[in-house]
Amino acid sequence: MNTDAALLAELHRLRRTVPEISGAVLAAVDGLLVASDLSGADPHHIAALSAAGLGIGDRFAHLVGHGPLRESVIRGAEGCVVVYPAGEDAILTAVVPPETDLTRLHAEARPAAQRLGALWAAVRQPSVATAIPPTTDPDAPLATRTPMAALPAGLWSETGGWRSPGRQ
Rank of each mutant, 00 (worst) to 15 (best):
M1I: 00
T3W: 05
L7H: 05
A9C: 05
E10R: 15
H12W: 00
L14K: 00
R16L: 04
T17R: 14
E20G: 13
E20C: 01
V25T: 06
V25L: 02
V29R: 14
D37R: 07
L38Y: 08
A41C: 00
P43R: 07
H44E: 11
H45W: 09
H45V: 12
A47Q: 05
S50N: 04
I56Q: 12
I56N: 01
F60S: 07
L63N: 13
V64A: 00
H66P: 02
S72A: 11
V73W: 06
I74E: 10
I74G: 08
R75C: 07
G76Y: 14
A77Y: 13
G79Q: 08
V83Q: 14
V83M: 14
P85K: 09
A90E: 00
A90T: 03
L92M: 00
A94L: 02
V96E: 01
P97T: 04
L102M: 05
T103R: 13
H106S: 15
E108V: 04
A109F: 09
P111H: 06
A118Q: 13
L119R: 01
L119M: 05
V123W: 04
V128T: 11
A131M: 14
T136V: 09
T136L: 10
P138V: 09
D139I: 08
D139H: 14
P141M: 13
A143L: 06
A143P: 13
P147Q: 06
P147V: 02
M148Y: 12
M148F: 09
A153F: 05
G154N: 05
W156P: 03
G161D: 06
G161L: 10
G166E: 08
